[in-house]
Design a protein around this nucleic acid. Sequence first.
RNA 1: UCCCUGAUAGCUCAAUGGUAGAGCGACCGGCUGUUAACCGGUAGGUUCCAGGUUCGAGUCCUGGUCGGGGAGCCA
Length: 483
Amino acid sequence: MECLMPQWMRVTDAFAAAPGTPLTIKGWVRTNRESKADGGLCFVAVSDGTCFDPIQAVVRSTVPNFEHIQKLTTGCSVEIDGVLVASQGKGQSVEILVDPAQSGALRIIGEVEHPDTYPVSNKRHTFEYLREVAHLRVRTNTFGAVARMRHCMSMAVHEYFDKKGFFYVHTPIITASDCEGAGQMFRVSTLDSVNRKLTADGKHVDFGEDFFGKEAHLTVSGQLNVETYCCALSNVYTFGPTFRAENSNTARHLAEFWMIEPEMAFCDLKRDSEIAEEFIKHCIDAALTKRGDDMKFFDERIENGIVARLKHVLETPFRRLPYTDAIDILQKAIAGGKKFEYPVKWGTDLQSEHERYLTEEHFKQPVILMHYPKGIKAFYMRLDDNCAPGRETVSAMDVLVPKIGEIIGGSQREERLDKLDMRLDEMKLNKADYWWYRDLRKYGTVPHAGFGLGFERLMLFITGMANIRDVIPFPRAPKQAEF
RNA sequence: UCCCUGAUAGCUCAAUGGUAGAGCGACCGGCUGUUAACCGGUAGGUUCCAGGUUCGAGUCCUGGUCGGGGAGCCA
């Protein structure tokens, strides 16, 4: 089938065209300046979002609507016919000459009604303010760059797994199984929340009357579902929206975010961590090679040195060490005078400050911690063999990166039914709720492993942006669902 | 959810309890192959909301709402 040919040129392609090429572009005015030179000129910088830089149109005063063009302000939409020429000015290599003598024209498509109150005028704005105009913020340099990078990273995810022979599985958004066990969930219901029908004892809501005939929620993880496909297709992954109703208000949490969860059959923790590292490096490589224009901007205006830092991560093998060794390092640091707010003790989870010390001060690079105490990890993680008494660990791993902290959490799964049941009992979970998950261990069980990666945290890591609400188009967080 | 902090022009911020200002943006003019332009001028305000103290509140007090920083929970 033939692809439809575009009727005009994208700005990104215009920059790559040969001088002398006649072309038409369409986009939105970024800036408009005028000059009396050459009998009167307007310099109209136009962006269509296809690349970082806007392209400059140089409009001669001989165009019939020149007076109108002089009044163009930031945000107006235009259609421009012109000829690509080498620029006479500094600051750009090529520009579009709009000269009626060469069939040049600039047609105004949509004006900005009130330029004095246009929310994203041509000046610096704070990210906090721009969040309030999320429908327009993507027209700014920063959010345009973030949007293109988000696409680039999405594609990199699929490229990586496709190339490795993984199958993309669409795990459900709505789940009626109450066994995902990762934080507060959003209820999905068609029941009348005011006049609820109660069960016979009059104490509980009768979910038998509800749409699914039982309690249902938005998913907090696709992992348990994707494990079932893993145990048939070998290598699989999900990449979809995930929902957490936690009332957490930080620069690293969202109520709705996107998560990537690969799952591999016949795979142990070591290989799991190798895939995690290779995957992150693939994403970094894609960002650097495919979005050099946007990375240059992030490097100059968002986080100085981020390109060098990402290159360093790309070239350096991740540091791997057992949780127990990390505790030793932290305790030695304390002995050497380092002050932490929270105590460091074997058996407790590492706090943000501890993770930051390891990645930012001690190792100064990404670190993969492995083999955590079983008491602080989920029921499905595989019990390590040959543990010292009182020091039982599970085959878990966390990938920690500077500034962000945990970017990946994964584990080898418990494939032995007796051990899994033991863990369910220990954590006082109802085995009946996990009947289909337990079936996987009854019918041709295999060692398998996987991990979860928060897509927006990857975006923070790649772009250097500080707040997770600025790397997703329309953030959902407590008290925030305006757009 | 806890601790800290903030809300004043379209935006970013000033303003001893006593006449509400500046920069940027917008508009008008000048200059300029311009490009964070530059120079001059103009317009633009229910000081977040509801109470209270006071002769008088942007400012002080109480309660909300929302934002930011840190923490917890986590991805």
